[in-house]
Simulated assay, not measured.
Amino acid sequence: MVSTLKIALVPGGSRGLGLLVSRELLDRGHAVAIAARDHDELTRAKEQLSPHGTVKDYVCDVRDADAVKQLVREVEQDMGPVEVLITVAGIIQAGPLEAITVEHFKDAIDTMTYGPIYCALEVLPGMRQRRSGRIGTVTSVGGLISPPHLLPYATAKFGAVGFSEGLAVALAGSGVTATTIAPGLMRTGSHERAFFTGQSAKEYAWFAPAASLPVLSINADRAARIIVDGVLAGKPTVLVGWLPKVAQRVHGLAPGLTTRGLGLANRLLPGARPEQSGLQEGREAASALNSKVVKVLTTLGSKAARKNNERG
């Protein structure tokens, strides 16, 4: 069945920012295909999004090029040609360098660098043939500067920025646009689904409040509106919130000073313990921390987690 609505595909659309971007697209009259790894999570997301318009859900791991190829094939058979792609799928792994492994880098890069590459290259032939299409890649302030204790994340996001900006250059004059989206911290509730290593509870204690407090983080609904506005308008770059705007300017003017400043911040964060290994999800780290202060500081983030399908 082919829809008469414009079709948007949102990999990572089952929760958090991806869920809100999907809802924003639905509210603007698009039919939306959401994709993620978790079937149950997709089912809950579809139920939440369905009142806003036509939505279909697809299980797909963006780390797998063949799975992405199958995803696009199924979406276009079921719904019609993909005219808007916004790739949001991502993971966060926080911890000191001593606790980071090669596998952490591989998972981050496969998800947040190769994932957007696979998705974009799969929808591009049809878009170029039609001389019409919008591609948005959600990167991060962590793709403009490298924050402490987020090295795999930043490595992957820097790759995504390079791909997305280069794609915009390569598509100039084709009728297809590529938008590099760099948000700062957003109150999506993602701190509960982030992963922590080293002294996991202590890592959660700084990360979760930062991702929850006003001023430090932006309202996620507003972020989704800004993102969709920028992608549909075909803007080459969308900076969401004050943090990436400041980071871009300061790093551009004084890259060495920026790196030294971030190095000082790194020294203030928790170190690793040899006996601790592996990744612990935010919800588990919060339980282990059991801090009333952190619970208060993450009140808005916890509310967002409930709202944005970050909890099972």
Rank of each mutant, 00 (worst) to 15 (best):
N309F: 01
L71P: 09
P11F: 05
S190N: 04
F163Y: 08
P125T: 08
Q248E: 04
H39S: 10
A36C: 14
K303L: 01
R311W: 04
L25W: 04
T177C: 15
T87N: 07
S291P: 14
T197W: 05
M127L: 02
A201E: 14
P183Q: 02
A154R: 05
A224T: 07
R222S: 15
S200V: 07
T259P: 04
E122C: 10
A156R: 13
T180G: 15
L25E: 13
A99C: 13
R128A: 09
K56H: 09
A286T: 02
L297E: 07
P255K: 08
G234W: 05
R128F: 01
L20V: 01
G142K: 04
A36M: 01
E284F: 15
V2M: 07
S140R: 14
D107F: 06
Q280F: 03
K202C: 02
G263Y: 14
I117D: 08
D221S: 12
R225E: 06
L262M: 13
P152Q: 07
G271E: 14
G13A: 13
R15Q: 03
R273V: 08
E76W: 06
V294G: 03
H191I: 00
E76N: 10
G115T: 10
G90H: 11
L121R: 15
G252L: 07
D107G: 10
T137C: 11
G241N: 01
H52D: 07
P152M: 05
K295V: 03
P96S: 08
I7H: 04
E98K: 12
A220T: 00
S212V: 05
D229M: 12
D110T: 13
Q280C: 03
A31S: 08
R249P: 12
A285T: 05
R187F: 00
L85E: 06
L49R: 12
I109C: 08
G80T: 06
A170H: 13
A272K: 09
W206R: 03
A172H: 02
R283H: 14
E76F: 03
A182E: 11
D61M: 11
L232V: 10
S164T: 04
I100N: 09
R130D: 02
K307F: 00
R44M: 09
A286L: 09
A67E: 02
R130S: 06
V62G: 10
K303N: 01
D61S: 06
A208T: 00
A182K: 15
D57C: 12
S190G: 14
Q129E: 06
L239S: 15
R193D: 01
S212Q: 14
A305P: 11
D66W: 15
